[in-house]
Structures are given as structure tokens and as C-alpha cells.
């Protein structure tokens, strides 16, 4: 019994310690950003890497998400004889929920894992130490630009996701299943309000921040060798994905 309590206590301490380190990590990254933002080119490069290079994946996944929403939505709405609501159903689910979440998950898989691996390898091959010996702040080059870039890129990717998804739904609902074009878009205009849009934007801003934070943190505190980096990468992707979904619930509850 005592050992069980001890073990739980040790676990709790471990978790608290990690959380403390994570918070100090991100606070320091933000402090560096304010004190010593560095050249815009570092941020632009990261926006290119996290954002521009993810566009294809985002377009692909969003097209299919929109299309499947079209199918499922039509099937369900047809039961109530309200196929005309399809545009509204597709747009609302994308803008409020699926756009921010799925685009963030895709970015985690594509760019988040790369962020962890890059920082992890730089750490274990003493490249981070080399920056320090030059009296250059490693966070300025490795962490802060990635956080800014993710906060810029993820909402933009989410916007692409929403638009392409809506057209995917249109393709299936209107062109394939014969819903009226006017009804599809009219219902959409009627039901989507400003609040839906900004709650989506707030979500994807937060997710972008979370991805960059968790993935660079995991890379920075990687263990030894190639296996250490691969473990850190897996852990980062799992943790970021879980955090996105958990955070999504709470944001929805607050923003609703």
C-alpha cells in the first residue's frame, strides 16, 4: 500500500516537474521573442516550411473530408427531408470543428515531427552548444521563429481547409447527389455567423501555438542518440495530437 502511494507520488512529481519545465520553456521562448526577435528571414523560412509546404496535404485531406461530409450529411438530412440544409451542415462542421482540428493534426504529423527531429539532432550533435559558445541565443534561432511561424501558418492552412472542404461537399452534394446549388450556398450564408468563424480562428491559433511549443520542447529535451530523437519525435506527435483534441473540447465549451 505504502509503495503504491509512493509510486503515485513519484509519478505525480514527475508529471509536475515536466509541466514546470514545459512552462518555463515556452515563457523563455516568448521572452526571447520580445527581447531579441532576430531577423524576419528566420520566421519567413519557418512559415514556408510549416505553412507553404503543408498546403498539398491540407488540400488533399480537406477535399476528402468535405466530400465525405457531403455524403454523410446528405444521407442523414435526407431522413428528415431537409437535404437543402446540406450546405449549412458541411460549412458549420468544417468551420467550427473539423477545419481547425484536422488541419492542426495534419500539421503535427508533417511539420511537428520535423521540428522535434531537427531540434533534437541539433541538440545531440552539439550544434546548440556551438550557438551558445558564440553568445547567440539558441531559442532565437531554433524555437521562437517556429512558434511565431506556426501561429501564422496554421490558421491560414485552416482557412484553406475550410474553403476546399466546402467545395468538396458541394461537389458531392450538388454535382453528385443533386442538391440545389442555390440552396447549398444560401443555407450556408444564412447559418454561418461571424462567431463561428472567429471561434475557428481562435482554435487554430491555439493549436498552432501548441504544436510548436510541444514539438520544440520535446526536441530540446531529447535523450541520447538516434533512438532518443526517434522517441522524442513519437512522443511529440502523440502528445501534441492529444493536447489538440483535449484543448479543442475546452475551447469549444468556452467559445460556444
Amino acid at each position: 500500500m505504502i509503495t503504491l502511494v509512493e509510486k503515485l507520488g513519484a509519478l505525480a512529481r514527475c508529471v509536475l516537474e515536466e509541466m514546470g519545465r514545459m512552462v518555463t520553456f515556452v515563457l523563455y521562448a516568448l521572452y526571447t521573442l520580445v527581447r531579441n526577435p532576430g531577423k524576419p528571414v528566420h520566421i519567413i523560412k519557418q512559415v514556408h516550411f510549416i505553412g507553404a509546404k503543408s498546403t498539398f496535404v491540407i488540400v488533399l485531406t480537406s477535399a476528402f473530408t468535405g466530400m465525405v461530409l457531403g455524403l454523410q450529411g446528405y444521407y442523414t438530412l435526407a431522413k428528415f427531408g431537409s437535404e437543402g440544409m446540406l450546405g449549412s451542415a458541411v460549412a458549420l462542421s468544417l468551420i467550427r470543428e473539423l477545419g481547425p482540428v484536422l488541419s492542426a493534426l495534419m500539421v503535427t504529423g508533417r511539420a511537428g515531427s520535423a521540428i522535434t527531429a531537427e531540434i533534437g539532432i541539433k541538440k545531440i550533435t552539439e550544434q546548440v552548444d556551438a550557438l551558445e559558445t558564440m553568445a547567440l541565443e539558441p531559442f532565437k534561432y531554433l524555437v521562437s521563429p517556429k512558434i511565431v511561424a506556426a501561429v501564422i501558418a496554421v490558421p491560414l492552412l485552416c482557412a484553406i481547409f475550410d474553403v476546399v472542404g466546402i467545395y468538396g461537399g458541394y461537389l458531392v452534394g450538388v454535382k453528385l447527389l443533386g442538391v440545389n446549388t442555390g440552396a447549398y450556398f444560401h443555407e450556408m450564408y444564412k447559418s454561418v455567423v461571424w462567431k463561428d468563424v472567429y471561434s475557428g480562428v481562435i482554435k487554430s491559433l491555439s493549436f498552432g501555438f501548441l504544436i510548436a511549443w510541444i514539438c520544440s520542447y520535446k526536441g530540446y529535451y531529447t535523450d541520447h542518440g538516434a533512438e532518443g530523437v526517434s522517441r522524442a519525435t513519437t512522443a511529440a506527435v502523440v502528445m501534441a495530437s492529444v493536447c489538440i483534441l483535449v484543448c479543442d473540447y475546452f475551447l469549444t465549451a468556452v467559445l460556444l
Binding site: E118, I121, T125, E126, Q127, A130, A135
Partner: peptide
């Protein structure tokens, strides 16, 4: 550290 320069044993070049 502004006063220092350092050569690492493994060179520690920026690999990208």
C-alpha cells in the same frame, strides 16, 4: 562568451 571562440572536438558544424 563574447570574448570566446571555441572549436569543438567533433567540430559541431551547423549541418543544414
Amino acid at each position: 562568451r563574447e570574448k570566446f571562440g571555441m572549436l569543438f572536438q567533433n567540430a559541431a558544424l551547423f549541418d543544414s
